[in-house]
Amino acid sequence: MLNLVARNRVLMLLAVMAAACLALGFAAPGYLSAATASVILSNSLVLLLISLGTMLVILTRNIDVSSGSILGLSAATLGLSLNAGASLPLAIALCILTGVVAGAVNGLLVAYLRIPSIVATLGTLGLYRGIMLIQTGGRWIEDLPQGLKALAGGIGFGVSILTVAVLALFALAWIFLRRTRFGRYFYAVGDNRDAAHHLGVPVRRVQFTAFVASGACAAIAGLIFAAQIGFIPNQAGNGVELKAIAVNVLGGVSLLGGSGSVAGVFTAAIFLTSIDSALVFLKIPAFWNDFIAGAILLTVLLLDGRIRLLIDRRIRARRYAVHDRVPQAAETPGNHADKTLLAEASR
């Protein structure tokens, strides 16, 4: 049982979430409804995508703190080109291209110019936000066309086309990481870079790809952001990168690289978002959100750490228990021929 919980962060999160939901259902009747679920899902889309991109980077033992700025920059590109009269598909293509280029710059700095990822992306965090402000002249982008906002509208079952797109991306990422050789390389590079290099894994290409993917995810998140709220403030995406890192940690992705699953990230992002909506139902003032989210994050991690320690101790005990069976055998005289052979082998 203990093993199951520790090995499977997703299960643990689901259990905590289920318990919390049940408690909430009692405390605030009306919380447990399809409508709430739909709201939570659509509220978490931006965080989901940023977390997914961040996860790909963290897996390779790097970090990307510029994704919030990439979100802002690509959203601004989208808004400006739409307002300049570009068609929606063209604007979306430009938006994603912006994210890919921004991610590629990150990847170039880290993988090929060997700048530590925290430093490189801290730099581009400021840089991209700055470019966005220069582009927009520091003004908010409003009056976005209806066509964009319509993307966030429901297409039945309380989901929008955006929700479907995000779910599809998660499925793709899951298949990529689980079932493809290149996906396995992500884990290998993060786990032990030297070993991966030694075994012929294209380490730099993997790192570069991770940053590009992260940039693309951030750009799509920017698109969703703009479609959902209908305008683009200067601070769009500000701070979401840190929340995404928290989601990764909560979802069981090791910051040291090499381990973590898409399912964990998905569950953790939904979990964090559902806390926000639960607080609304409980009529707790919104300024408590950060405090409660932080407290829950720490509690889960602490619990998880303790369980892991316990399991490690058990594994070790089991391994060493082998020695306890030996002494009787040792006292009986052994087969002499065998021993001679062994001594021979040792020469």
């Binding site: 060493y320 082998v322 020695h323 069976r325 030996v326 002494p327 055998a329 040792a330 009986t332 052994g334 087969n335 065998d338 021993k339 062994l342 001594a343 040792s346 020469r347």
Partner: peptide, 28 residues
């Protein structure tokens, strides 16, 4: 195997050591 397998005070040789080191293990 986690226990004292024996002690050699004189005639220390590779053979003698190997015999003690593997003897218990082979039995197990």
């Amino acid at each position: 195997f986690g226990r004292l397998g024996g002690e050699l005070t004189e005639n220390i040789s590779v053979d003698a050591i190997a015999r003690l080191a593997f003897g218990a293990g082979e039995q197990a």
